[in-house]
Write a protein that binds this DNA or RNA. Structure first.
Length: 539
RNA sequence: GCCCCGUUCGUCUAGUGGCCUAGGACGCUGGCCUUUCACGCCGGUAGCACGGGUUCGAAUCCCGUACGGGGUACCA
């Protein structure tokens, strides 16, 4: 009689209760509080600082952030840097990664720069924690007896042979367990003698481990198929699955929200949590993010596959958040455009769908346009100026155009026309000197023919004597000219616009003329009239 | 190979056994508006992967097939 939604809800709450038991174990958290709504919720995003943030990763980060913020004061968003790869984890790369996060506007409660009760938040500084956890797992006097860590002296050659044998027999390769049952004395002797060894984690031979997933539901894995896996390298450094669990347990993470590519790691991690005596967090595996062609999103194949590229193109962070949130999740059947506040209010991890989703750049652009148009002039101007200061190089051909106006002035001209801030400078190109009419504009001016000449001849003296060169005055004058010449607005504004802006894409006419000023406007009208008349005469 | 996950218009999605001759959005497209470009408005286009069940009734539940994806490391 349970509806599916009801069943999901039950699953959603169970892990929270487990979390509280564990919190009590650590002497932290809220004991005895069984109200789901007030349980603290702690999530994290743990990127490796490679210098770029992939859209798929950004989506994971966003879902964690929205989940935490949705829980208000009870939600904590932790940023932990997985910088164990010393080569790529340079301070510059870390700083670059943090810059991207700040741009995306996902503030973290604990992590680099702010620290917190579980510092440090860099894996490279947490060796002691991993060492202690390893010691705990290797202590054979501890429970449970079928889950522990042991040194494995198998050489790479031996393992390669095992693997080859498994392949030949068409059997899945599972670690044979050769070093699992060495006697304690031999182990101790070989370790003391300095024999190279990794540390493996012993898992039960039988039984299944089931992952209760907020997105996928229950998924079970046979323990026998997992095999004792390596948790520490020969040099003692921890492997991902181990470091991740140790950190998440230590930081009291209650919900692990991550990409679906981690699903098969999860049973291993659950076993690890149990062996460590730590609370198993709730899991939510997000559907993979695909490129527009349905292939896995990659920098190579897809032009804007990183957050940096979107920032550079002039997208607004809020629109990107909106678009990212909509990958695999929806508020309902009709809502698309949402402010971040709305995202936070409505975000529900249990509504995330299971299947992979291709990112739709067309829709992203549309969303961006919607957000840009909905902004206040002040916000739009600030965003535009931030973009142009950060991303438009001084030697760019449109640099001068972009800086010809303030953000507020530009907003008045083109806010409702642009899909991204990156498009703004091109609209402003008409303001630059020396003036040069584009080929397309000239072609269209030519098409106006004799009418065009008449219009320009009429308009020049009119504007020379116009008292006020303000926008309203200009509009009134130009509309008046339509009556005087008995022309439809379209016929009259066309030649004027092409002559004045020299472009086929430009802001509104009176706005443009006003911004250009009387002298330059009239100069251009005259030049256009002369050129057009000369061309017609010689034809 | 083995394990796991998934499959609704081209794309993102709504859908939890009757409200579905499947709704919305992007895209594409016809038209209107119009001062270029946009915006806006009205309309059109197109989908439940396939095959079996269960049921009075299936996009929805079950089984199988196909296809796609993830994993199978001293990567993360």
């Amino acid at each position: 009689m349970w509806g599916f939604r009801g069943a999901r809800f039950i699953r959603y709450r169970l892990p929270l209760r487990e979390g509280q038991v564990a919190a009590a174990k650590w002497g932290r958290g809220t004991s005895g509080n069984l109200g789901g709504m007030t349980s603290p919720v702690r999530v994290r995003f743990a990127p490796s600082p490679t210098g770029t943030l992939h859209l798929g990763s950004a989506r994971s980060a966003l879902n964690n952030w929205l989940f935490a913020r949705h829980h208000g004061a009870n939600g904590t968003y932790v940023l932990r840097i997985e910088d164990t790869d010393q080569e790529r984890s340079t301070p510059e790369n870390v700083e670059q990664a943090l810059r991207v996060f700040r741009w995306l506007g996902m503030d973290w409660d604990e992590g680099p720069g702010v620290d917190g009760p579980f510092a440090p938040y860099f894996q490279s500084q947490r060796q002691d924690t991993y060492g202690a956890a390893l010691g705990k797992l290797m202590d054979r006097s501890a429970e449970p007896v079928d889950r522990y860590a042991y040194p494995c002296f198998c050489t790479k050659e031996q393992l390669a042979e095992d693997r080859a044998a498994a392949d030949a027999a068409k059997r899945p390769f599972i670690y044979t367990g050769r070093c699992r049952n060495l006697d304690e004395e031999e182990r101790a002797n070989r370790v003391a003698a300095g024999d190279a060894h990794v540390i493996r984690f012993r898992i039960p031979d039988a039984g299944t481990t089931v992952v209760h997933d907020l997105v996928l539901g229950d998924t079970s894995f046979e323990n026998a198929l997992i095999g004792d896996f390596v948790i520490a390298r020969a040099d003692g450094s921890p492997l991902y699955n181990f470091a991740n669990v140790v950190d998440d347990a230590a930081m009291e993470i209650t919900h692990v929200i991550r990409g679906n590519d981690h699903l098969s790691n999860t049973p291993k991690q659950i076993l690890l949590y149990e062996a460590l005596g730590a609370a198993v967090p709730a899991f939510a595996h997000l559907p993979m993010v695909l490129g527009p062609d349905g292939a896995k999103l990659s920098k190579r194949r897809h032009h804007t596959s990183t957050v940096e590229q979107l920032a550079e193109s002039g997208y607004s962070p809020e629109a990107v958040r909106n678009a990212l949130a909509l990958i695999g999740w929806s508020k309902d059947d009709v809502t698309n455009v949402m402010s971040t506040a709305e995202l936070i209010e409505h975000f529900d991890i249990t509504r995330v769908k299971k299947s992979a989703a291709a990112i739709d750049y067309d829709k992203l652009s549309w969303l961006n346009g919607e957000h840009l148009r909905a902004m206040s002039v002040a916000d739009w101007a600030a965003g535009y100026e931030a973009w142009r200061d950060e991303w438009l190089p001084a030697d760019h051909e449109l640099h001068a155009a972009a800086f010809a106006l303030t953000g507020v002035e530009a907003a008045l001209l083109v806010q409702e026309k642009c899909v991204t801030w990156g498009e703004v400078p091109a609209y402003l190109g008409f303001l630059l000197e020396p003036f040069a009419m584009s080929d397309e504009a000239w072609a269209r001016l030519q098409k106006t023919g004799d009418v065009g000449v008449r219009v320009l001849e009429h308009v020049v003296p009119m504007l020379e004597t116009l008292d006020d060169f303000g926008m309203e005055s200009l509009e009134a004058a130009l509309r008046g000219a339509c009556d005087a010449l008995e022309l439809k607005p379209g016929k009259l504004f066309g030649p004027v616009r092409f002559a004045v802006t020299g472009q086929t894409i430009a802001p509104g006419l009176w706005e443009s003329m006003h911004e250009l000023g009387r002298t330059r406007t009239i100069e251009r009208l005259r030049a256009g009239r002369d050129r057009l008349a000369a061309t017609l005469a010689s034809a």
